[in-house]
Amino acid sequence: MTTVSDVCRHVRSKNAGPFWVTFDLFFDGEENFAKYAQSPALGPQLFERLFGADPAYVQHYPVPSLNLVKISYARDTPQGGRVERDMHRGQQYVRLLNVELD
């Protein structure tokens, strides 16, 4: 069983404007990037399940030159609303670390 943290040297999350959140998954090399960049386990349904994202607003960008996958989704609640817990969304990446890729 391989998890995101097994094959990434760094994972981060951040707001991208008030309405979007973006995740950067820096894979540990070309091999794992090639193997997992398009993994269905990192598909829109994951972000729906973990973050309540609308799958129609989940974007997925492989960046081969950096062995990186960027995934962005539209927030379900606006930044700073009454249930805000993480204004920059900077801690949300932690929930990706244990996601099983195969």
Partner: peptide, 16 residues
């Protein structure tokens, strides 16, 4: 090259 190219990702929903 890595530090510069990686910055295009920062706080940006589309890296390109």
């Amino acid at each position: 090259p890595h530090s510069v190219s990686a910055h295009m990702l920062y706080e940006n929903s589309n890296p390109f």
